[in-house]
């Protein structure tokens, strides 16, 4: 009898785990069915400390079924003024200017193909901000000569690229298996602080099949952040403190010299 009960017990335990297992698997497959694309950022907070020299932002994702993958990384919008130098008495001086409002301060993207133009139409590229030419770079002032706008737009993109704030070319989406992928974005030391958006697209037959976005914060932390915040929020006090520190340093150096 006891032997029988023990058998029943162990049987029910096995049955329980079996049912649970089936349930978990089906639950997962249900999620997977609902979301054909999932990704996660290894670090959703990039800390700029005093020793910060840039970092690599890694993202791991999973796609279900076929389709190409696009990942874009966009920094906080900032208004930027572009200036053109021309010669005045032989010296190169800023003359013409054009201001662009709310352009991404930082931009990088990665594709599972080599060229974004193979994925979708120009309109869709623009809608989803895929590729440098798809970024919305519109001048603040209206009624400006088209040629001038084009000239300054390309100058802005060039400047941003030279300063490693816009990517030179699309990064690669690296497949770890058939469906798991990984993307690395390299952020330089002077990456602008603020809220970033990472957008992942699953593209099939020229259409965006699925879209997912996550936010990411790049911020000064610790000492750097304290100084920055203090200098902005209590500007006078900060200036006065700088002077006090300098005075103390001057006094100290004089004191040390006199002693030695």
């Amino acid at each position: 009898m006891t032997c029988c009960r023990r058998f029943l017990n162990s049987f029910s335990a096995i049955a329980f785990f079996f049912v649970l297992g089936v349930y978990v698997v089906s639950a997962f497959s249900e999620i997977a069915a609902a979301e054909p694309l999932q990704f996660d950022i290894a670090d959703d907070y990039v800390e700029i400390t005093t020793g910060f020299t840039g970092t690599t932002l890694s993202m791991i994702g999973y796609r279900k079924g076929r389709g190409d993958i696009v990942l874009t990384l966009e920094g906080p919008p900032r208004s930027t003024v572009v200036r053109q130098k021309s010669q005045v008495f032989g010296a190169w001086v800023n003359r013409e200017t054009l201001q662009f409002d709310n352009i991404p301060s930082y931009y990088d993207f990665a594709l599972s193909v080599d060229d974004e133009k193979k994925l979708m139409s120009d309109e869709l590229l623009k809608e989803y901000h895929v590729g440098l030419n798809a970024l919305r770079v519109v001048p603040k002032e209206k009624r400006i000569d088209e040629d001038k706008i084009k000239l300054f737009q390309s100058a802005l993109l060039r400047y941003k690229q030279q300063h490693q704030l816009y990517s030179q070319k699309a990064g690669a989406v690296e497949f770890l298996g058939d469906d798991f992928f990984r993307v690395d974005f390299h952020l330089p030391a002077h990456v602008p602080a603020g809220n970033y958006t990472v957008r992942a697209l699953l593209v099939g037959k020229g259409k965006v099949v699925y879209e997912d976005a996550q936010s990411l914060r790049v911020g000064l932390t610790g000492f750097s952040s304290d100084i920055y915040e203090f200098s902005r929020n209590h500007a006078f006090l900060y200036g006065a403190l700088c002077v006090l520190i300098a005075c103390f340093a001057g006094w100290l150096s004089n004191f040390i010299v006199r002693r030695s």
């Binding site: 100084i227 902005r232 500007a235 900060y238 200036g239 700088c242 002077v243």
Partner: peptide, 28 residues
Amino acid sequence: IFTTAAATIMHALMNHTVDIVLGLILIL
């Protein structure tokens, strides 16, 4: 001492361009 102190405070107040970390390296 006083004019540069005034300039430092004014720059900090009006332009937010005084970098104390850079300043300390320069002083040292």
